[in-house]
Design a protein around this nucleic acid. Structure first.
Lengths: 134, 134
DNA sequence: GTACGTAGTACCCAAAAGGATACTGTAAAA
DNA sequence: TTTTACAGTATCCTTTTGGGTACTACGTAC
């Protein structure tokens, strides 16, 4: 039988947006994907890149990404253990999405230790990120 | 004093991605933004577009979007009440992000009543969304 | 013989998110 | 006279998420 996907999406308008967000959800998935985009990493390498996340949490998020099929986990049967995490081809298709998210964050979110703030470039004294690089 | 934003981001690599996700987080924000992108809506108009969400949840998500400055809420002092929700200029800057999310969802997420599934176009019998439209 | 690095699990707890249900007040329509 | 639409609140409850701490096994370096 054929898959009436288009019909389903018309019954749940906005579903594709929500659907994508479902896979990026979880406190650390965004950052993990961001880092893995730039290359394979071992468990503890990732851990060092995310000092704030606990071992338990990192494992959990990675398992979820693995289950979605966005990230692959390769175990080398050596001792001490060696486990490598990498983006799958499917995961790589997220690149434009991650880039869009990063670009918006760069331009409109002001990140400080006290919290986050959101504003239009024209609102404050601040120039957009592009201008800062110059 | 100048704002050392670039430095902060370098200390929290991946932060811009996470930062953006923070504002899209919440079970219904994606869909709400998706709909408001296409024009102003009254409370109950939105409600009808999202049959699955309760009144309490819709209110909560809208208040959060309002507090972020992404959505505006205009109350007309008439009876019965009339309240309109619209994207702010800041909210409108999210358009490319929402589009990227929607595009990816369209191409790689298969949405069915039983749940969601993720796959590469080449993996299954299914063609990418673009092909279906033809 | 003690400590370190590797990649995790197991167990417990607190906080946040989400959801069901019932209620409000006014005006117009049936 | 009862019902409907509007835009919510209030209260309570369940589920999910996130975090802290301790523990494992193995081999190597000190």
């Amino acid at each position: 039988m054929s898959l009436p996907r288009a019909k389903l999406i018309k019954n749940f308008p906005g579903c594709p947006v929500e659907a994508t967000l479902t896979y990026l959800d979880g406190k650390w998935k965004g950052v993990i994907l961001f880092h893995l985009m730039q290359g394979t990493l071992r468990f503890n390498e990732l851990r060092r890149k995310l000092p704030a996340v606990t071992q338990r949490m990192l494992t959990k998020q990675l398992r979820e990404l693995e289950e979605s099929g966005l990230v692959s986990r390769t175990v080398y049967p050596v001792v001490p253990p060696r486990v490598e995490y990498a983006m799958t081809p499917l995961g790589m298709t997220l690149k434009p999405v991650i880039q869009a998210l990063a670009a918006w964050g760069d331009d409109y979110v002001f990140c400080s230790p006290e919290g986050r703030e959101l504003r239009l470039a024209s609102d404050g004294l601040r120039a957009p990120a592009a201008a800062l690089e110059a």
